[in-house]
């Protein structure tokens, strides 16, 4: 497939919007909307995207949007999709929410909507803090990162939302990155073909909050993946699978040094060697867990297969 076939020329995030220069979430949203097309309605809770949209009477989105309060996006999307279905109207109902609206204040509603398995795609664009209000720590802020409410570095650990969502046994969970647009677009398109609740979590670098030169957004997003900080994966009907290039990163030797990712960002400038070790350890643990999950998954599948074989005999 050629690039232009996969990425339609049509722009649904219109130029002249209010995103900061080099905005990672805006780049991700541009891909998401290209993958979704015009028969899409976005539900957007309070977040940078409420501002990126521009102000009344103009909207930077070429698709219908419902702006909603912080904690309410998943429940609003639940009612929206059920209402459309009740009237026989077909459309992609998609939540586009930041990390605060997802892992913190919106989590209860998100969990409820996922458990009810509405036909909704929920996309979290994660820039790892409350950027719209001025870079305050969220539950998605990584260990060690500076924010205005963690001036000496965050002591907490990034909440692992993709796996929390997978524990809801929804049909599709995926992670993505704007540095890997083909993977991202494939995942969004795939989600539209699956009925039920889909969750996609995009790590979207923020030059303003992460303190780096806006030209580095894609480079930093790429390094997040290549250092193993942000694994690209999908969990389809409970089955975990790594996606390229993360597939190769189970071997720690294949991962780029974490420092390469951190040193480009001002928010990690104060990081001590000790802090770096803590963060590196968290990443190693994450991969050890993924590795173990893949192994257990294979064993379970073997056992189920054997059991079925024995029953047939």
């Amino acid at each position: 497939m050629s690039l232009l076939e996969q990425f339609p020329r049509e722009e649904y995030l219109l130029k002249g919007n209010a995103a900061c220069a080099g905005c990672g979430p805006a780049l991700a949203l541009r891909y998401v909307l290209k993958a979704l097309g015009p028969r899409t309605v976005l539900v957007i809770p309070a977040s940078c995207s409420s501002i990126i949209a521009g102000a009344y009477p103009k909207s930077a989105f070429k698709v219908p949007v419902y702006h909603i309060a912080f904690a309410a996006s998943a429940a609003t999307a639940s009612g929206l999709v059920e209402g459309l279905e009740a009237q026989g109207i077909e459309a992609n109902v998609v939540v586009w929410a930041g990390d605060g609206g997802t892992v913190d204040i919106g989590l209860q509603g998100l969990s409820g909507a996922a458990e009810r398995n509405h036909n909704v795609t929920y996309i979290c664009y994660d820039n790892e803090a409350y950027m719209n209000t001025g870079i305050q720590r969220s539950g998605a802020t990584p260990y060690g990162a500076w924010t205005t409410t963690t001036p000496l570095g965050n002591k907490g650990r990034k909440k692992d939302l993709p796996f929390i969502m997978a524990a809801h046994n929804i049909p599709y969970v995926a992670t993505a990155s704007p540095a890997f647009p083909k993977d991202l677009v494939n995942k969004v398109a795939k989600a539209q073909k699956i009925r039920g609740f889909k969750y996609i979590h995009i790590l979207a670098p923020c030059p303003t909050g992460w303190r780096y030169d806006p030209r580095l957004t894609v480079k930093i997003a790429r390094l997040a993946v290549m250092t193993g900080f942000w694994p690209l994966l999908e969990i389809e009907h409970g089955r975990l699978r790594l996606n390229n290039p993360s597939t190769n990163l189970l071997d720690p030797a294949r991962r780029r040094p974490l420092k390469e990712y951190l040193e480009l960002q001002g928010r990690y400038r104060h990081l001590s060697e000790e802090d770096l070790k803590v963060l590196q350890r968290q990443i190693d643990e994450q991969w050890a867990r993924i590795k173990a999950m893949l192994r257990v998954q294979e064993e379970l599948e073997d056992q189920v297969e054997q059991g079925q074989g024995e029953r047939q005999r």
Partner: peptide, 17 residues
């Protein structure tokens, strides 16, 4: 309170450059 799709919802952003 409905806003319509428009290029330049935040003005001529080329001026930011």
């Amino acid at each position: 309170p409905v806003a319509r799709p428009s290029v330049g919802a935040a003005g001529k952003t080329g001026n930011w450059r």
